[in-house]
Amino acid sequence: MLLQIEQVTSWYGKNEALKQVSLSISKGSCYGLVGPNGAGKSTLLKILASIILDYQGKIQIANQPNGSQKDQIGYVPQEICLEQNLSAISNLYFFGRLYGLRGKELRKRAAEVLEEIGLSERGKDKVMKYSGGMKRRLNIGCALMHGPKLIIMDEPTVGIDPQSRSYIFQMIARLKKKGCTIIYATHYMEEIEKLCDGVAFIDQGKIIEHGAVNELLQKHAIPSVFVKGNQALPEELDRFGKVTNHHGGYLITTNTPIPVMEAVLHRYQDEPEELIQLEIVRPRLEDVFFSLTGNELRDDKKALQEQAMGGKW
């Protein structure tokens, strides 16, 4: 294990931001962290990055206590932490110097990182002239200057175009291939499905479920069959699972999709042209997320709690 988190508890004022969080992340993996707003994802990442020092519990990175090897960790914050009035190269030099890079080594590494993040052509331009996606890539690049083994990314794709997002995915895949371990916090479930080997769902400061992505899908998400046609559904389909109206057809949530499909095909065998669409709907991580955390808006709940406590002010 590269990272071992044991019983970590942290506070935000009088409230517990993290409650007895325990996780193990193996070397070379990409591990997702998912949760609603205010769930404690960023708090956990800031603790791992030694930004928040006030916590209880034990964290070990490569068998060393947390904070003792900052040069092994690259932290990509949610915010764009760049000097907007300076060029991308100046920003990379700055972060490189913080880790002791100097002279030729610094220049060489900055050139490599610029290449890696796809900004070689624009390296001398001021950051303020960059698009959102370019800034996000540079934000990641700054965390890569010292060649860290563990990269902590806090929602690195917020508010960017699909091209930049895809580029960042490719970068992450390359980093993984090089043996880096990545912790990736996001709201986007498809990113977790695409990038991560493991995932932890965090809600109200607790890890409510964690494990390999496929295992969690098998454990929590029930597949469905979608049917769209010009004939009424066979009544007996009710016994396979819950039937709901969905996009002008029917969605049958069932653990046995094949018998359902057989029954539908049997129904349409005399008039196959009447059947418009029949498919198995793959279970999504989003379904797991909602089944674990519910659909309730967390911002509203938080605001109500604060109001009940007399407000922050």
Binding site: A49, S50, I51, K70, Y75, P77, E79, C81, L98, Y99
Partner: peptide, 13 residues
Amino acid sequence: DLGMTARLASTPL
């Protein structure tokens, strides 16, 4: 406010 102070806390500085 922009998170640079926090960001720098994650470095050896």
